[in-house]
Deep mutational scan, measured.
Amino acid sequence: GSLMYASIFGNVSAIIQRLYSGTARYHTQMLRVREFIRFHQIPNPLRQRLEEYFQHAWSYTNGIDMNAVLKGFPECLQADICLHLNRSLLQHCKPFRGATKGCLRALAMKFKTTHAPPGDTLVHAGDLLTALYFISRGSIEILRGDVVVAILGKNDIFGEPLNLYARPGKSNGDVRALTYCDLHKIHRDDLLEVLDMYPEFSDHFWSSLEITFNLRDTNMIPGSPGSTELEGGFSRQRKRKLSFRRRTDKDTEQPGEVSALGPGRAGAGPSSRGRPGGPWGESPSSGPSSPESSEDEGPGRSSSPLRLVPFSSPRPPGEPPGGEPLMEDCEKSSDTCNPLSGAFSGVSNIFSFWGDSRGRQYQELPRCPAPTPSLLNIPLSSPGRRPRGDVESRLDALQRQLNRLETRLSADMATVLQLLQRQMTLVPPAYSAVTTPGPGPTSTSPLLPVSPLPTLTLDSLSQVSQFMACEELPPGAPELPQEGPTRRLSLPGQLGALTSQPLHRHGSDPGS
């Protein structure tokens, strides 16, 4: 009898404990919600809404976190579960008819179910419309201010047509639940991603989709105040780019002037030289400038040598048109050559190039014969006009050509200096018209024969001689050997007369 009593008592207590286990969990969670309300000092109306929603959600799901349970299964099984949970929507909604099984599984994985109690606001006026909503159960109302403009029910759709707008718009009203509602919502990016994977279904979906109420604000059109608020930074940046392009296009129409201050000032006329910023005076940081632009901040801005204009002085008759350009485009679109090309026009420029290279940067340069637009006047290309890779490749080509020119210049200078040193070592320090008596009659020769300089066969020296023939050397430049009979510069000019005159010897006659 005691054994029977113990078994009955144990079973009854276990049954009672299981009955009250759900209630215990409910009270535990309710205590957490109330502690949250007390800690954050939530006001009474919002506090009442929180408690009511918790009670309804507990009775609806029995305190089970559906998302946590669903995430515990593998992905393939999750797709089947989501397809079952959203079967009513996918079967009865017209846009989803005719979709393949794979497309429906992908869509079912992207849908999220939302449960809303009465009085809950789903979308506020001015919120971004980031999702498309399908009503599965219940009814909602749409308000503009305090005026109800629409009441939607089961199988209705609200949001915005995503295929017509590249960016999400703003809501033009509040969406509030009238009863307990079940909503299926899919985010904008998720829907577009699935439709991109199934393009054959995309056309059918957009053609058959009928949005019951379009929440997009109709005033959000390009150029409206609301649109400016939504895309303020983007609009200002776009206007700045367009104004920069218009100014650079105007600059290219004036090829007669070359400016070292950047493309923003290349198009300024002579009357605007004294102004601080020219056409860019209202925004000094709008356009890029070269490193020399920092010198323009000092006094005497109108007389600054940074602004270059072609000189009108005539060229000498024998002067060549100019050196070879550094870039391939210089032959086609440049009416002034790079300062480095002028360094190779003569030997005198070679000796004085490194010492006063900055001073020569603004000297007169030889002109190319074609009066085409200036290379320095070409505006900086924006990322939309020329690819970045093209600019980098041009810079690399320019750097390689500069290296080759520097190597060639160093070799030419070394060769010229070597020839000058050899000339100085071969010439005796001094010569006299009267020579010392020699031991015999073989001493009648006034000077030792001097062998002429070897013929220069280097390509670089031939180019130097060509430049010497075309360029007029300055007075202080050293002379180079030329073709024809060679003669030492330090010898007297009348050596031929010395050989014809008898030598005057000093000596005593033994017979006297």
Rank of each mutant, 00 (worst) to 15 (best):
L128N: 08
T130N: 12
A131K: 10
Y133I: 03
R137W: 03
G138D: 01
G138I: 01
I140Q: 01
E141L: 05
D146F: 02
D146I: 01
V148P: 08
A150R: 04
I151P: 01
L152S: 02
K154N: 08
N155Y: 12
D156F: 01
D156M: 06
G159H: 01
L162C: 10
R167T: 14
K170S: 06
S171D: 01
N172P: 02
N172H: 12
D174K: 06
D182W: 15
H184V: 13
H187T: 12
D189L: 04
D189P: 03
E193W: 07
M197T: 11
Y198L: 02
F201C: 11
F205G: 03
W206N: 04
S208F: 05
I211V: 12
T218D: 13
I221A: 11
P222G: 11
P225G: 09
P225K: 11
G226E: 06
T228L: 08
L230Q: 10
L230Y: 12
E231T: 12
E231P: 09
F234R: 11
R245Q: 12
R246K: 08
D249A: 07
D251H: 07
P255A: 13
S259L: 10
S259D: 14
S259F: 09
L261V: 09
G262L: 10
R265M: 11
A266I: 08
G267N: 10
G269D: 13
P270A: 07
S271W: 07
S272A: 10
S283M: 05
S285F: 13
S289D: 03
S290A: 05
E295N: 09
E297G: 11
P299G: 15
S303Q: 08
R307M: 10
F311T: 10
S312G: 10
S313C: 07
P314W: 15
P317K: 04
G322D: 07
E324L: 13
P325G: 05
M327E: 09
K332L: 12
C337N: 13
A343W: 04
F353W: 12
S357A: 10
Y362V: 08
L365I: 14
R367A: 13
C368K: 03
P369F: 08
A370V: 08
A370D: 09
P371E: 08
P373T: 08
S374M: 08
L376T: 10
I378N: 14
I378Y: 03
P379Q: 06
L380A: 04
R385K: 11
R386H: 15
A397C: 15
N403G: 08
R408H: 05
A414H: 08
V416I: 11
Q418G: 10
R422C: 04
T425L: 10
V427K: 08
A430H: 13
V434L: 13
G438M: 09
P439R: 10
G440W: 10
S443V: 06
S445Q: 12
P446T: 11
S451F: 09
S451K: 11
P454E: 10
L458D: 08
D459S: 05
D459T: 12
V464P: 11
F467D: 09
E472W: 04
P475M: 08
P475I: 12
G476I: 13
E479R: 10
L480V: 10
P485A: 03
Q494F: 15
G496I: 12
T499I: 13
